[in-house]
Design a protein around this nucleic acid. Sequence first.
RNA 1: GGAGGAAUAGGAUAAUGGUAAUCCAACGGUCUUGAAAACCGUCGUGCGCAAGCACUUGGGGGUUCGAGUCCCUCUUCCUCCGCCA
Length: 425
Amino acid sequence: MLDMQRIRENPDAITQATINKKSPVAIDELLELDSRRKNIIQEVEQLKNVRNERSQDVARLKKEKKDATELIDSMKQVSEKIKDLDIEQKKIEDEMYAIQIRIPNVPHSTTPHGNCEKDNVVVAQWGEKPVFNFKLKDHIELGTSLGIIDFPRGAKISGAGFPVLKGMGALLERALLNFFLDIHTVKNGYTEVFPPFLVNEASLFGTGQLPKSREQMYYIGDDDLFCIPTAEVPVTNLHRDEVLEMKDLPVKYCAYSACFRREAGSYGKDTKGYLRVHQFNKVELVKIVEPSTSYLEHESLRNDAESILKALGLHYRVLSLCDADLSFAAAKCYDLEAWAPGEGKFLEVSSCSNFEDFQARRMNLKYRPGAGEKPRFAHTLNGSGLATARIIVAILETYQTEQGTVRVPEVLQKYMNEIVEIKPT
RNA sequence: GGAGGAAUAGGAUAAUGGUAAUCCAACGGUCUUGAAAACCGUCGUGCGCAAGCACUUGGGGGUUCGAGUCCCUCUUCCUCCGCCA
């Protein structure tokens, strides 16, 4: 949600931004409604002023035991008029709101301009592509032959896109999540949160998934709840409709959650294996910050996510997403992509976004700059730190040996009962 | 799932249907070497340079000239009963 004042002052720039972001919105229509609304407000507030004053007169007359019938009768017309105007105003505001909630966030000045994901800019690389002197297996072969990922049985009990982890696979998953949480809580200063995995509509509106991406989520109609697509939703919404104190900023949360995505419309894309699944695990990082610090906090958020990839010894690159590829709510976003040798491509394992005050406006999340000062909207950020499904792919494929086993990255060994190699069972 | 009760500003508390009073906390000031105390002021939101105006008693509707108050409805919390990992 954008500030109406900002839209009034920069209509052309915002119209262009919505086009660049591939979600054009009729800003001129919105401004037309805005000026109609202004006129109505002027008229109705004047009438309300009359009503308030005459009501006081009625009270005075009654107190003095005088007749107020005439005054009361004359006020009936005014009240009728107010009622009509109120309805008219509400109608216009509803129309405005319907447009406003579909305006995407405006990209930050440092966000590159482009037409599609091919125009994303590589801003950093770490490590090098590992070199192998034997024929590589992909994670499906490795996972199956090692007996740690079971695709067919997952399909049997739930459906395609619900693989089952077993034995060392399940342990690896658990080790990764614990490792992520330990790094972020102990080393990076985040407070751990264990959120609900089902949320209501208001929460999804707050972070921007609704109304635009309804079809991407699992919905439980009997209770009007949605399965979360990311822990970003419950965690950012923890402070919805709140005013935070300056001393509590920046708020830094990390949270494990399962993530549920229907992936509607992505059929034919990454259908095989563990690359695009309906349920995966992720540790999410969420920050609520003072606006002037948000871009510094964005860089440090990216650093925190990168530190995990470095510790795991995975080759990766960092993309700055172009405006066309930026999500609805984001002003700027870095994608972290880990190299998967078996696939021969980079896999997105983290998305670090700065939403500025876009989400904060939608969820009414404010902070008080100082004692006695008026509350202002905070800035919110989040990033994966990290998502496991694809990290497991990268690990299996990067650390595979000629014998078909997989070496365990050193930092994970203490989380895996000191096992150093995953062998077939 | 059933039966009761409750919700007023950061907290606490008032208001015969007549337009939200008061206390505490917080903040600014006076006084003071400094602090405390005392005293004065600010202390829900929006618009406005301002004067001011409008809005605000958990959310949404209704009755009324006028609703914190009456009616309907939803939400949350508390107590009890039932069910349950």
